[in-house]
Design a protein around this nucleic acid. Sequence first.
RNA 1: GGGUAGGUGGCAGAGUGGUGAUGCGCGGGACUGCAGAUCCCGUCUACUGGGGUUCAAAUCCCCACCUACCCUCCA
Length: 449
Amino acid sequence: MQIYDTLTSSLKEFKGINGKRINMFVCGPTVNDRPHLGHAKTFIFFDVLAKYLRHKGYHVFFLMNITDVEDKIITKMREENLQWEEIVTRYSGEFFLNLKRLRIDSINYFAFATDFIPEIIGQIKRLIENGLAYETDDGVYFKVRKFKGYGKLSHQSVDALVSGARVDINERKEDPLDFVLWKKKKEGEPFWLSPWGEGRPGWHIEDTAITETFFGPHYDLHGGASDLIFPHHESEIAQMEGISGKEPLVNYWVHTGHLNVEDVKMSKSLKNFITIEEVLKHYWPEAVRIFVLSIQYRGTSNYSEKSIKDSQIIAEKISLLHHRVLGMEQIENENSIMETAKILEPLDHDMNTQEAMVRLIDFLKRMLGEKSLQGSKGGEIKFVLDQIDQVFGIVRSTHIPNEALNLIIKERNAARKRGDYATADSIRNELNELGVKIEDSSDISFLWW
RNA sequence: GGGUAGGUGGCAGAGUGGUGAUGCGCGGGACUGCAGAUCCCGUCUACUGGGGUUCAAAUCCCCACCUACCCUCCA
């Protein structure tokens, strides 16, 4: 399998440091607002990546951090006139709920930044010992120019960064590029104790403290959206490599491109933020996943009403086929294994999910066109859909007991047989209102939803 | 100014040297108690512009133009 690595700007053959055991870290959200579609794109992508690696036989430990202390959270606290804990509880709760609804369930552990204060302090201490950090009267800063190699991930020279950047006016810093490791407390802010007094950690240090705790100074894969390349991930490299003296920190840096909405970047000032919750009011979670899989993970992509509608149509086709083989026994044979492999194969080429979707749609078309699903056909389809679902999570399932539905369908078919179409249509309409669709052919009916 | 990714048919979106991806849309037909779903046929001389390499270029090279994103918090 090949995957694109941002650090080397190239496709690299994927190989684990410890054989089949893969340590993977993805930057989670700052919990200061409701999750939006951009989060969905990134987290669905990494969910599928982890699941695909597992499908290929890797044992993936998928770690995600939750930034629960940050300037924006403090701003939000003041705006809403709430306690820090209340903001964190509310928005991390919303985040987890959204993950669940979107069927993002491959993450092994969520690490909250504030649960790692001792580890963070330990890292800052070692940076100071190594001469890479210094204390001022408002915090502790990282000496960027002291770390050769700063800029290697974002492919910028330190001087270019200075000339292009708006200079951060903070006279206490030795250099405008220096970034904060520890912020000393101001009135009304949440704080923790440290050798530098009461305060809170900077944004970049939490991730290296967490990953070092779980994985050590060198691990397999680090993911996140492309806007995190600089300065966040750049600074992670500086911190961890500055502490350990070992490089690289990470073998594969994987970044997802941004998602625009109706061709415009999502931003709060334009009020075009689309929350995940809003989309899920109108479309299936599976449709959102299909949408994400239909676009390039690395590119900037566009979300539109039309694109999600297209995805919803595909989601419904999958569901339709799934319900045609509901209750059949899976059959794993040469044919069903081959069909599965054909659909998943493009993922070996830098997670080409769009091509995989094309092949899935081709499979759907062929199978929906089958006149009869008797014999082994139905069971083979069931096997393929099950395998595909384990990686993509796009087969719609239900919580309505099949027995109950089967009973209803039996009654309705009896009504149809005796020509009582009024009853048959009324049952169909009522089921439809419950979100359960019914499909008739001359001799048999299918339910799907 | 520096960095990165791009410019493909009505729309979305693949394809990276040689048989018109695919989906949506649109038109027609089959099937059906009806609806839906499904199937078949049709719709298109698509590749930003200009040079170059080649028997052959959307695909490689050069130049130009344009777009998006990053360089400040951001998934």
